[in-house]
Design a protein around this nucleic acid. Structure first.
Lengths: 317, 317
DNA sequence: CTTTGCAAG
DNA sequence: CTTGTAAAG
């Protein structure tokens, strides 16, 4: 694998400045209509540019991962989520908020020939949380949890070792109404970072999932109104910042800096999705040294079946 | 109001022998098909004969009451129960298992011009039990409960005094899975009988509602299998028998003795309604001395919207 | 099987 | 607003 100029350049930059010029830029949401208070102007839906199939160095992607918070696996299957997944055909599928353990996974999903290797982590509490990792090829190993028993009772982390990287599926806990779980969330954020750093010491890491934080103001529609809402507190944002400062990149934002209205979650309340009043909560976070392998990161916000949409990452490994 | 021959005859009978010959007889369910064990033969749906609009003495009905266990008033409204009720146009509508108190009754029902006088009894426990009584004309008075505070916390009884009778709406408690509430049910049955007898001392009584008992073997599809099921225990049947022995009549059975497959309830489980695997749990029970005023009693088993169907009684007062 | 309420998001 | 749960029928 020859080193390519763009990759060299990227490796040379020190401040985490993301690439700009030669990556496709999504059209920013047009401003229109009334335009008074924050949120009065329509937030147009972010539109994925065509898939960039190659790295800047010209290497074609050979590894695709899709992540989706399904908000209840069984309802999601009833709503046809499986069809989209079959067409999407990723190498690995990461699912969050399954709200069930492996024993309650619908048979049609368990029998998908596309994903013969399936791993499920359920919460102790029935109908709550839960993640899944489904793979086309058998991982070297798959482990449950983040390494802290007090944080591992809710089925939120699965870690697969693959030949060239660790793949982590995460469903980061919501801080709760009234931020009742914010302190626990902070412990969680620290533990997750430690877990990723530990893994990263032996192999590069790809983390995918619902990280339950909108990092910057442009990552949610109503930043002002949500200064103390779960998912946009300083505490949560800073924890994410420490991840980025610790050798990891937010692959979507790395590719599309400054692009607004690119959300992955819309509350079911009040028809938020129809008005694109959303949040970017779902991420692929990548070890910095893998950034040269990054071809593209897609937000499939037209895809229905949950209050989150699926996201995909394309790597040339 | 001239005394009419049929009425005289009815008053003369001592053993509670119901009228037979000149009342319309419903066709008994035809036997067909396999016919092995109890329940293997199809139980054809009982079909109401045409409405008998007059008493045997020739007096036309002038008072119609409909009773319906709605199994959740709000769902029932969503399913269009109101439309049928508006066409049915009874003078009084008795509703059971509303699963809500007056404060949660859908506005479109509260505003029905047809029923300007509405009375609701909710259970202390939200979403459970509850009855309603809706009237075209204002009752003299309406009271809550059966007269025993230990039995009156669940919104099961409303009693309206009308000029010529007491009208009681009842939702008798289910004895529970495993008959865990059978003892309480027996207390309830005694208290209900006392209540009716007390009322009957001053005015004749019409009791309508879900009495949660199938009295005879022909009042349910599978009597053998349900000997110890809630609603068909000896205890519950005997309590109903005491009511009938105490000066009251089961108006449907009085009119249609021996007619099988006339059910008012079908469990949602296993498609019971489609096979008419049901129970007769809903009744109009009448003071014996009112039997001459009885024109007809109808089981509207084609009407959907609940796991019970509505029943109606037609009186010439 | 269906309705409630509830917790959670 | 939607998912799941439980209790109840």
């Amino acid at each position: 694998m020859p080193k390519r100029s763009r990759k060299e350049a990227a490796e040379g930059e020190e401040e985490g400045e993301p690439a700009r010029s030669h990556w496709p830029q999504a059209p920013a949401g047009r401003r229109g209509g009334r335009g008074q208070a924050e949120g009065a102007e329509p937030a147009l839906l972010y539109q994925d540019p065509p898939l960039r199939e190659v790295t800047p160095g010209g290497q074609r992607f050979n590894f695709k991962v899709t992540s989706w918070n399904v908000d209840g696996l069984r309802a999601w299957v009833r709503k046809g989520g499986l069809q989209w997944v079959q067409e999407d055909a990723p190498d690995v599928l990461l699912l969050q908020e399954t709200k069930c353990g492996g024993g309650q996974v619908p048979p049609e999903l368990q029998r998908l020939p596309q994903f013969p290797h399936q791993f499920w982590a359920g919460a102790a509490r029935a109908g709550y949380s839960g993640v899944g990792l489904l793979a086309r090829e058998r991982p070297i190993s798959v482990t449950h949890g983040i390494g802290d028993p007090s944080l591992d009772a809710e089925g939120r982390i699965l870690t697969a070792e693959l030949p060239s990287l660790f793949l982590v599926c995460a469903y980061v806990p919501n801080s709760g109404r009234g931020l009742t779980r914010l302190a626990e969330r902070q412990r969680w954020d620290r533990a997750l970072r430690a877990h990723l750093t530990r893994l990263d010491a032996s192999k590069p890491v790809l983390l995918g999932g619902d990280l339950n934080v909108a990092y910057e103001e442009l990552d949610l529609r109503h930043p002002r109104a949500n200064r103390r809402s779960p998912g946009f507190t300083n505490e949560e944002r800073e924890a994410f910042g420490e991840l980025l400062g610790g050798g990891f990149i937010d692959s979507f934002r790395f590719l599309y800096p400054g692009v607004p209205n690119a959300f992955t979650f819309w509350t079911y309340l009040g028809g938020a999705r129809g008005r694109n009043v959303g949040w970017r909560l779902d991420y692929f976070v990548l070890s910095r040294r893998l950034r040269g392998a990054l071809c593209d990161c897609k937000i499939r916000n037209q895809v229905l079946g949950s209050d989150h949409c699926p996201i995909s990452i394309y790597l040339a490994l």
